[in-house]
Design a protein around this nucleic acid. Structure first.
Length: 278
DNA sequence: ACTGGCTCCTGAGGGC
DNA sequence: TGCCCTCAGGAGCCAG
């Protein structure tokens, strides 16, 4: 389940392989992804100028436009040799002139491929996205300002891509734990101070995960394309019923916005002015 | 303008 | 061992 750190790790992994190279051909074996894959013929022969990222979208930018790739829930990209037989769910090959191919695999087909002519930021998938969590626009004050009239749970607020991008279910839960905030607290009830802790927690946790992912980059090419740093220590996600790492209280499960949410009932009580001890 | 619920899909995991 | 059932999850879409 690629979250932002995995997408960024993927981007870093494929960038040196694609940048400056000419796309020889794009072979779509299965076009039924989240939206039908329709790519223009003129992709063949274009030179890749850069491999960028916006939210969880990977932007492969060429002279004539940009390929917008989303990994969905189960998508991955890996570099393979041309004679490498496609495996189950290997849906798309991007054949690069220097020999090796970039291969997209996605069992659940929640991912997507689009091509858009410049400027890609105006594409309908990208134009309504909120700021990057690791960028300068994002801060506790920003979260506070955007939440004043919002009654949704604070967890749903930070998972809303129009508010801030790249905070998925796992990192939302972990950030709220780090900040000591109860996930179900209505967004408008969370204080400016609490949002400052939360924004800092989001930045630290995402940045750390990207760093950890970076250490596995050497295994990226030729592997299964999974960054594989997922075993990183999680304090709450997936740990319902277990003991809190900080206070030993039993972690609780709550469904918020159709998403499982685990939190510590003791540590996560902060929404106002005084942060709890643990 | 907001909000919650639905949807796509497959594989993992639990129960028997 | 094997089958069946349930559920997870990103994010756009739509109805209320």
């Amino acid at each position: 389940m690629p979250e932002l750190p995995e997408v960024e790790t993927t981007r870093r992994g494929i960038e040196p392989f694609l940048s400056g190279q000419t796309i020889a051909r794009v072979n779509v074996r299965e076009s039924r992804l989240r939206w039908p894959v329709e790519l223009p013929d003129h992709l063949s022969g274009s030179v890749v100028k850069s491999v960028a990222r916006r939210a969880k979208y990977i932007l492969i930018e060429t002279a004539t436009g940009a390929l917008i790739v989303h990994l969905g829930m189960s998508g991955s990209l890996r570099v393979v040799a041309p004679n490498d037989a496609p495996r189950l769910h290997d849906h798309i090959d991007i054949e690069v002139k220097h020999g090796q191919w970039l291969r997209y695999n996605d069992p659940r087909r929640f991912g997507s491929f689009h091509f858009v002519e410049h400027p890609s930021a105006q594409h309908w998938l990208l134009k309504n996205l909120g700021p990057e969590p690791l960028g300068n626009e994002f801060s506790g004050d920003y979260l506070f300002a955007t939440s004043r009239k919002r009654k949704v749970a604070v967890k749903n607020h930070i998972m809303d891509g129009k508010v801030v991008v790249g905070v998925g279910n796992i990192y939302a839960a972990e950030s709220l734990f780090r900040a000591g905030i109860r996930p179900s607290t209505p967004a408008y009830k969370v204080s400016r101070l609490a949002y400052r802790f939360l924004a800092e927690a989001i930045r630290e946790i995402l940045a750390n995960a990207i760093n950890v992912g970076g250490t596995t980059l050497r295994d990226f090419v030729g592997s299964d394309g999974q960054p594989g740093y997922f075993k990183q220590s999680l304090n709450v996600y997936g740990r319902q019923g277990e003991a809190c790492n900080v206070c030993q209280a039993q972690l609780k499960l709550q469904i918020l916005g159709q998403r499982s949410t685990v939190y510590c009932p003791t540590c996560q009580t902060f929404s106002g002015w005084k942060r709890p001890v643990c």
